[in-house]
Computed example of a mutant assay.
Amino acid sequence: MKFSAYSDIKAVFIAIVAGVILAGASAFAKTVDKTLALVNNEAIMLSEFDKLAGPMLDSFRLRGAEMTAEEKEKIRKRILDDMIDKKLLAQEAKKQRIAVTRREIEQGIDQVKKRFRSEDDFRDELKNQDLTVKAYEDRIRQDLMVMRLIKNNVEAAVERPTEKEAAELFEKIKKVDAEKIAKDDKATDDDKEFAFIARLLAREAQEKVHARHILLIVDKNAPQKEKLEALTKIRDIRKRITDRKSFEEMARLYSEDPGTKDRGGDLGYFTRGDMVPEFDKVAFSLDVGKISDPIFTDFGYHIIYIEGKRAGRELALDDVKNDLLDFLTQKKATKKYEEYLSSLRKKANIKINPF
């Protein structure tokens, strides 16, 4: 269990920027360009800004979220602030002559390429963004330099929290009313963070099941013949497993769930309510080592194998101490990072033009 999902170090923004080739769509490439900000005489152009801001604002619209002009302005300001911070960090990394190896750059690019179906798709996206391979390598190099700068100047300065601090946080979280905070418009960021952790602790304390499954995808509105063919096939797969074939091996061969197929159908541990009701009911009723009969959900036909179970329990400090220590470390790192950025901003000459 990790608590970092709510309070991430802002440096993650830096770490992934190189991987988002490309957050922008080519539709933004034809923006009438102008200088949006100057950071120590280095320009941030409107076209660069639009490549980040455009898709983000579009994602809100696609989810049907109505944003006020004030909310849009806040998002745009945050994006520009992040771009300024990234520019300052890149300048400081260059000033400190931070070096990265050719091998590190290649590894960074390889990580990005994994998001594409082929090398051609990757190069097509570079072309769509008017980027040469060399220009993209330079971007990767700069982002790796910034990551190393942060490691040297921020992470190295963070003190590991004590077990006493973890114990105090544990006691504080036990008293948090997460539901009340969720309804409180005046709740502080710390309140919301504690509520988030309290919900995770409550979830961790619940009964859990560790299951594997094999899925044959069938639309719930498919013709009866198609459903019967899938049911016949999954019954045959189940019989082969009961005849001493490995569930894990059969999942790799036949499951159509792309998220678990390569892991032998492994879903890990989950609590009640994590899965669709039909799946949930069967998984929690089976004994360890047992295989379910085929069940039908909105996804298709499944068979389920139970790897293990954990009874619900009251959590003790030792159950979550390491996670709490990691959380406190991250909080301290976030504070150090913000202090470091603040020091760079104070020394910088920053000019922002109207949008």
Rank of each mutant, 00 (worst) to 15 (best):
A166D: 03
E338I: 12
L317T: 09
Q91F: 08
G259M: 13
K183G: 08
D326M: 11
E338D: 15
E48M: 10
G54A: 12
I234H: 00
A333Y: 03
N41P: 01
F270Y: 13
G312I: 09
D319I: 12
A182C: 01
G289M: 07
A27T: 12
S292Y: 02
K192V: 01
G300C: 09
M1G: 08
D191Y: 07
L169I: 02
G273F: 04
M56R: 10
K321G: 04
R115I: 02
D177P: 01
K175M: 14
R310N: 11
E278A: 10
Y269G: 09
K192L: 06
E104K: 07
I44Y: 03
L149T: 04
D219W: 12
S342A: 15
K127Q: 14
K30R: 14
A202H: 13
D266I: 06
Y269S: 13
Q129F: 03
G264F: 04
I352E: 06
R141C: 05
K94S: 13
E163P: 08
T271C: 10
A53T: 03
L315P: 10
K95S: 15
E278C: 04
K225D: 15
R117G: 12
I241D: 02
K261A: 12
K186Y: 02
S285Y: 01
L57W: 00
K220H: 05
E92M: 11
A283N: 02
K186S: 12
D81F: 01
F279T: 06
R141N: 01
E249M: 08
G289H: 04
K192M: 02
P277K: 11
I217F: 05
D121L: 12
R235T: 15
T31H: 03
K192N: 05
A182V: 03
Q91P: 03
D121Q: 11
D50Y: 02
Q107F: 05
S47N: 12
R252K: 15
I98V: 14
K208C: 04
E278P: 06
T242H: 12
Q91L: 15
K30E: 09
L144R: 07
D121C: 07
F122K: 02
S7H: 10
H210S: 09
E155S: 14
K10R: 13
L324F: 05
G19N: 10
I9G: 01
D287T: 06
L228P: 01
V218H: 00
K175D: 06
A167K: 12
F355K: 14
A211T: 15
R345H: 11
I14F: 04
G108I: 06
D326A: 15
K186W: 02
K335S: 15
F194T: 01
A182D: 13
F116M: 10
K347F: 01
A5I: 05
R252Q: 15
K225Q: 15
V282L: 08
A37G: 08
D33L: 07
G312C: 03
I214S: 07
T132N: 05
H210M: 04
I79Q: 03
P354A: 11
A167P: 02
E42L: 08
E204W: 01
A195Q: 00
N41C: 05
D58K: 14
T260H: 13
